[in-house]
Design a protein around this nucleic acid. Structure first.
Lengths: 207, 207
DNA sequence: AGTTTCGGTGTACAGACGTACACCCAAACT
DNA sequence: AGTTTGGGTGTACGTCTGTACACCGAAACT
């Protein structure tokens, strides 16, 4: 009863976003019809236009959201710093598993739409991941032990790490949350990150 | 004139596959209609059924094809062995760039459908990549220097390498063939692989 | 109190979709 | 020579799609 108009509007907007996320979970945005979404939300098809000009724009909003939870993940990672490299890695993977579990829908969305979505959506995702890579590179530069690294090398390492994380996230998505496969992936990723870090450490001294 | 019936049939079958590959290039299989394909080929919609029961089955045929060129890539990689680890890496990346350039359509198809395609298609791709990973692991086991590696470690390393290759292939796809971006990706990948190999070598002695 | 704004409704239409069915005709069998 | 096979055609259907248009009613403004 006592609901302002903006509140109501925001509510159905959320409902539309959630419905689109749920409905596209087992296909893609490009295979999602405006009418399906409207039916799921419980509104008439034409009412959709009160919120988004098209499905593609809906998609862009979802990208924004999903990239936001990706950034949250990265922020979370930075806060989980331990003393030695080993505990940093362990913590990071734990956080990754946790976040993917928690935001299954968003990470799944990114994985699906990254290459198969409408082109503006693809571009937005690519740009977001690119940004994350750059941020990680500057973060790495502030870490002790990387003082002498060249910019190119820092970018190379950060691209390697982000790539591994994306791959791991995708693997985690196909494995059920809490499944034994999930644990195996986590362990494997920890080992891989350790390999990378060892390689990176040796790398500098080798040049 | 002088064309047997099987020849004709094979010809239109190929035309259908090619049309589907071309049409799905900027969307997805799930957004591809039987009628679009038929129109592109130049046959009437119902004639499609003479070759495939459904679009999904067409998709499975395309997966088979694409996985075949993936296997070709891996075979090619094995043949490009050099003396030291460095030249192996350089050669491998060169081959990867070359093959992705040559089979742009197939690798693009795999990248798109891996997570967004119809489920049977997704499963087939996952299985194919899984198989490639396993094959690489047994190949690594036959390499000198890995005698003492445990099976788990071999799988970990091969998963890391395959993951990096898939990621690189995806990056190459978004970069234009012959573009400066392509060269940058190749160089970066070479550096990453070197890091991994160094890490892996140190890894064994560390355990 | 009177008016405007705006999220949601209902009807309506043209186009694309998958697919069933009857048909054609040249190649391939007997 | 006569018959069967099978790739391709054309029509026809019911369903789903995006979207245009006129309308409603309550919240928000004046």
């Amino acid at each position: 009863m006592t609901e302002s108009r903006v509140e109501r509007k925001e509510k159905t907007r959320r409902a539309i976003l959630d419905a689109a996320l749920a409905l596209s979970a087992d296909t893609t945005l490009v295979a999602l019809s405006l009418r399906q979404v409207a039916k799921e939300v419980g509104i008439v098809p034409t009412a959709f236009y009160r919120h988004f000009p098209s499905i593609d724009d809906l998609g862009l909003a979802l990208v924004e959201e999903s990239l936001d939870t990706l950034r949250t993940l990265l922020r979370e990672l930075r806060h989980s710093v331990g003393d030695d490299a080993g505990s940093i890695i362990d913590g990071s993977v734990t956080v990754l598993v946790e976040q993917v579990r928690l935001n299954h829908a968003h990470f799944g969305f990114i994985a699906r739409e990254r290459f198969a979505g409408p082109q503006p959506v693809r571009e937005a995702i690519a740009h977001g991941i690119d940004l994350a890579e750059r941020e990680l590179a500057t973060d790495l530069a502030h870490l002790p032990g990387t003082d002498q690294w060249s910019e190119v090398d820092l970018q190379t390492l950060s691209s390697l790490i982000v790539g591994a994380m994306v791959t791991t996230a995708e693997r985690l998505l196909t494995a059920g949350p809490g499944s034994p496969a999930e644990r195996k992936i986590a362990d494997s990723t920890r080992a891989q990150l350790r390999m990378m870090v060892i390689g990176a450490q040796q790398w500098r001294s080798k040049r």
